[in-house]
Simulated scan of single mutants.
Amino acid sequence: MTETVETSKISRVLLFGALVIFIIAIAIGASRNFGSASEPTAATGLNDIDVNAAGPDAVIASLEERTRKDPTDVEAWQLLGWSYFENGRYLDSANAYGKATKLEPARAVYWSSLGESLVMADERNPMPKAAKAAFDKAIILDPKDPRSRYFLAVSKDLDGDHKGAINDWLELLKDTPKDAPWESDLIRTIEQVGKIHKVDVTESLASTQKKRASDLSGILKSIAAAPIPGPSKTDMAQAAKLPPGQQQQMVTSMVEGLETKLANNPKNVDGWIMLMRSRMTLGETAKAKAALTKSIAANPEAQSKLLKEAQILGVPGT
């Protein structure tokens, strides 16, 4: 049991440790691929902060003030939860995400973020009951939610169902974009848990990779599944060096910049697909669905392509 707990403590942070850099890469790639935007501005609700000078404490203080002024501001609670988490304040993060779930209980990403914060906040129990309940809620709302799928597999591993956990991680791997930053960590988790519990994963892992290659070959021209265009190693290194509070600001401002450009040029079908991809990666499923609706309205002749790409991304209702 000790080995299982230790393995799960390590594996619970592997998959999503690189997620913020992946999101930034999408934002950079989208911006570069569809025309350079003006210098990014601060994220919505943070315009009163000098993002070039403000550190994480200033961002958190501003968000705390925003929630005091308007306790019903769900976006502020989400951003505050994110900022707390990025600064290692996991219990505070859980409290903020808890507020978000009460304000918008139908948003899966709020529940899975709450669950992850609760996992990280508990140094003794690798899967607290409240965290498990949050992941269960999220997976009901969105069966494709990757964070919940990952941690629910961790829960199976902790309960002794090692094969079941590995199978769930393999299923998640099938849905993981090729060359996603967390891909190698997810594979490593499968291999590590298999080795510890003497479960041979060689054949199943090879079969999954073969299936992924086959699926990708059938959608090679898909914008939704294509490699992220544009970001160089320098871009990625610079993104990684950003203070945690500014990473979210950069992501939000760049994605909103793409949305602004699409408002001015709504006939850019590929731009709409990149916007949907960015929104889904951020967990903003409602905004991704809204982008799909707008894209079809502006490009009725491309409805079939837009719907197909949205299905690949898992946009709700497709």
Results as ranks from 00 to 15, higher is better:
103 L>S: 05
305 K>N: 13
211 K>G: 00
284 E>K: 06
13 V>W: 11
193 V>E: 11
13 V>T: 13
56 P>H: 14
105 P>R: 07
67 T>M: 06
315 V>D: 02
55 G>Y: 01
155 S>F: 08
81 G>T: 05
202 T>W: 08
59 V>S: 08
247 Q>F: 00
28 I>E: 12
234 T>K: 14
264 N>K: 12
5 V>K: 08
162 H>W: 00
23 I>Q: 07
99 K>C: 04
253 S>D: 01
283 G>Y: 08
92 D>C: 07
78 Q>N: 12
136 D>C: 06
260 T>C: 00
10 I>D: 05
25 A>C: 10
203 E>Y: 08
195 K>Q: 14
129 K>R: 08
274 M>A: 00
16 F>K: 10
188 R>I: 15
213 A>K: 09
72 T>V: 01
161 D>N: 11
68 R>V: 05
217 S>M: 10
108 A>R: 00
277 R>A: 05
67 T>F: 09
287 K>E: 15
273 I>P: 03
306 L>A: 03
4 T>L: 10
137 K>T: 15
157 D>C: 14
11 S>W: 15
52 N>Y: 10
231 P>V: 03
163 K>C: 02
176 T>F: 11
22 F>M: 00
260 T>E: 14
204 S>Q: 14
72 T>R: 07
158 L>I: 14
69 K>W: 01
49 I>Q: 10
110 Y>V: 04
29 G>C: 05
101 T>I: 10
295 S>G: 10
93 S>M: 01
279 R>P: 05
66 R>H: 04
312 I>T: 06
49 I>A: 04
59 V>M: 11
158 L>Q: 08
99 K>M: 12
87 N>W: 05
201 V>I: 14
311 Q>N: 11
52 N>P: 00
253 S>W: 04
134 A>R: 14
236 M>N: 09
50 D>K: 10
3 E>C: 12
138 A>C: 07
132 K>E: 02
97 Y>K: 01
4 T>K: 08
233 K>Q: 08
112 S>V: 10
2 T>Q: 13
97 Y>G: 03
232 S>G: 14
144 K>G: 14
292 L>N: 06
24 I>G: 09
310 A>K: 12
70 D>A: 01
263 A>G: 09
129 K>E: 09
239 A>E: 07
246 Q>M: 14
284 E>P: 02
255 V>W: 03
